[in-house]
């Protein structure tokens, strides 16, 4: 198993910067998820760990050894791809056995290893089929089996679930986490799906514009976002962000007034609060607006409120109902409020 260190990693193609100044240490057996919108540099970063892409600057270090000049095939990593990348001319058995053959694992041991990997991924009955005869979920499991079969130092998974439907995705998520814990292999996982990131990760690395925005446990990232990008990216619906002014501990924006904030702050700031930290009504409400939309989902009701020119999302009680355009007030949990600099978007503490 391995420790991975990315030190000052940059990737440029001519003038285009794909990844800038990525520094991170990944502990042995850790499950790290790179999360961000498409084009944020997360896949490129992973490909540099795999050796499929060469960093323009910086070092990829595994267990203290600089890997920059080492070929992908000589790094002990296994990768699962978004499109599965199963070899179409080979059966599933052959697909899973391929890495063992390439790494010259003794022939006598190959069969047992293939069968073990197939068992862990529930593919035993499909070993003699070609990839084209399998469903999406089965193909994904076959790709996973091919990755785990030779027990590599590092697993790299590039959006492995994005081609599956929601139900299957959830089942596979559990399976991936289970297998990772079982095999205790350092894992780097790339996704744009925050639910996957929150559920799988020991630590999440949020990327945007080629740079790391925040590194932290899922709880850190959710409760303590480092900037407006992270705040607006994580959560469903994400954190409400309202621009306004703060003076003497009081934040004011159109329709919103919050008191009791740190008195040292002044000027333009962004106020952030999560939809679930809001209560409709209350004795000293912070927000006044009109009902724009009510969406009951069964276990709760999504309430959209129009305040000034902006829409605010609130998670209300499941029994909550209201007529459109009626006046409504909302109280926030003051302990859960975040403030960000209006210009840089950075968190103010």
């Amino acid at each position: 198993m391995a420790r991975i260190e990315l030190s000052g990693i940059q990737k440029r193609w001519g003038k285009v910067v794909g990844v800038r100044d990525v520094d991170i240490e990944i502990a042995d057996e850790e499950f790290v998820v790179f999360l961000g919108p498409s084009g944020c540099g997360k896949t490129t970063t992973m490909r540099m760990i795999a050796g499929l892409e060469e960093p323009t600057e910086g070092e990829v270090i595994m267990d203290g050894e600089v890997m920059n000049d080492i070929d992908a095939r000589d790094r002990d990593v296994a990768m699962v791809f978004q499109g599965y990348a199963l070899y179409p001319n080979m059966t599933i058995y052959e697909n899973i056995r391929f890495p063992l053959r390439m790494r010259e694992v003794p022939k006598g041991e190959q069969d047992a290893l293939v069968r073990r990997a197939a068992e862990m991924t529930e593919l035993t009955d499909y070993l003699d089929r070609k990839p084209s005869a399998l469903s999406g979920g089965q193909r994904q499991r076959a790709a996973l089996a091919r990755a785990i079969v030779r027990q590599p130092q590092v697993f790299l998974m590039d959006e492995p679930l994005s081609n599956l439907d929601a139900k299957l995705r959830q089942a596979m998520r559990v399976q991936i986490k289970h297998i990772q814990r079982q095999l205790k292999v350092t894992t780097v996982y790339v996704t744009h799906d925050q639910i996957e990131a929150m559920t799988l990760a020991d630590r999440i690395v949020i990327m945007e514009g080629g740079a790391i925005q925040q590194i932290g446990t899922p709880d850190d990232i959710y409760n303590d976002p480092a900037n407006t990008f992270v705040a607006g990216f994580i959560g469903s619906p994400p954190m409400n962000l309202v621009e306004g002014a703060i003076d003497a501990g009081t934040f004011t924006a159109q329709g919103i007034e919050v008191t009791g904030l740190p008195a040292a702050l002044s000027g333009n700031v962004v106020l952030g609060f999560r939809p679930e930290d809001c209560t409709v009504g209350g004795n000293t409400p912070h927000l006044k607006g009109s009902v724009f939309g009510v969406e009951p989902t069964g276990d709760l009701t999504y309430l959209t409120i129009k305040v000034g020119g902006q829409q605010i999302e609130v998670k209300a009680d499941r029994a909550f109902r209201a007529e459109l355009d009626t006046e409504i007030t909302v109280t926030f949990d003051p302990a859960r409020i975040c403030l960000f600099d209006a210009k840089s978007g950075e968190r103010l503490r």
Binding site: L52, R73, D74, A85, Y87, P99, M102, R103, R146, L156
Partner: peptide, 15 residues
């Protein structure tokens, strides 16, 4: 042929 196939083969250890 998707480039992924070759990338997969590379990480699987093929030249």
């Amino acid at each position: 042929i998707p480039k992924e196939l070759e990338d997969a083969a590379k990480t699987d250890g093929a030249g």
